[in-house]
């Protein structure tokens, strides 16, 4: 069927075809994700229809609540509050954890001394840190963010310590011979080598942090997604609980797709070898 067409196709058409194929190839993963999520939603809808209950609302009802909360501005106010805490705790945990991790990874005696501390902090339950932070420092924003960061720091330390142990000394020696400045060493020698470890710590970090932030908000703040979930728990409003949860998961997904992944693609561009 298509054979007679190829004869009168203008020269540019071949390129058009290939770019169409490229577009299709780029869209396929997106469509797969969409179909997968749609399937999950459908299953949820069916289940909610089969067992109708106030404790198990269908996707339609959750969507209604979501729209209502968005319309009156509540949703964005609380999302914003939570997102701000997540961002602050993330930055504090990554910076402090990376510095400690790299120091421990590059000084063996320090590592031997502090390794038990790391294990200790790794195993203190998040709840204990949060409660203690509120008791010692009061029910304030700094205590909340600090408590979340302290929960995350040991994980970052462990990951970055491995990163520092894996540093290739030949790059540092080259930098020493050619007298790289301190800033150049950090930017061109150290950070690119630590990048995979930073990415791993970030990935697991954001997911962990936002869950802990909800607990912090539930226990001692008067805004944020965690506070709202606690409120609707007392009202037994499952639709609202799900609406807030899904809204925040969506926000995290957008961050992953439009912030984390592009940054990672940029950081690892040198790994790709053109055919």
């Amino acid at each position: 069927m298509s054979a007679p067409d190829t004869g009168d196709r203008p020269p540019g058409a071949a390129a058009g075809m290939s770019s169409q194929a490229g577009l299709a190839a780029a869209l396929t993963p997106v469509l797969t994700v969409a179909a997968s999520l749609l399937g999950l939603g459908l299953l949820w809808g069916l289940a909610a229809n089969a067992w109708p209950s106030r404790a198990f609302p269908g996707p339609g009802m959750v969507w209604q609540v979501l729209l209502a909360e968005a319309a009156n501005g509540e949703l964005f106010y609380h999302l914003g509050a939570t997102l701000g805490r997540v961002a602050a705790a993330y930055v504090v945990a990554m910076v402090v954890g990376s510095v400690i991790g790299v120091l421990l990874g590059s000084h063996r005696s320090a590592d031997r001394f502090f390794a038990p501390w790391v294990v200790l902090f790794l195993n203190i339950p998040a709840l204990v840190v949060i409660v203690l932070a509120y008791i010692w420092f009061g029910l304030n924003e700094a205590a909340a963010i600090g408590a979340v960061a302290v929960n995350k720091i040991p994980n970052v330390v462990v990951t970055m310590r491995e990163g520092a142990r894996a540093l290739d000394p030949s790059y540092a020696e080259m930098a020493a011979v050619y007298r790289f400045g301190l800033l150049d060493r950090a930017r061109h020698v150290l950070l690119p080598q630590l990048q995979p470890y930073l990415a791993a710590a970030s990935r697991s970090g954001i997911a962990l942090i936002w869950k802990i932030v909800l607990v912090v908000e539930l226990l001692g703040r008067s805004n944020g997604v965690g506070f709202q979930i606690y409120l609707y728990f007392q009202l037994f409003d499952v639709a609202a609980i799900l609406a807030y949860t899904l809204a925040f998961v969506a926000v995290m997904l957008v961050i992953e797709l439009f912030l984390v992944q592009p940054v990672e693609r940029h950081a690892t561009r040198w790994r790709r070898r053109p055919a």
């Binding site: 030949s170 790059y171 020696e173 080259m174 011979v177 050619y178 007298r179 790289f180 150049d184 061109h188 020698v189 690119p192 040198w270």
Partner: peptide, 26 residues
């Protein structure tokens, strides 16, 4: 200044050839 050519090239894999050369300069 001193310069060295090592047994392995020891170029920074995440920088281009030109960036590798220029980074060694004051």
């Amino acid at each position: 200044r001193i310069a060295a050519v090592f047994q392995e090239p020891v170029l920074l894999p995440w920088r281009t050839v030109e960036q590798n050369v220029r980074l060694a300069l004051p």
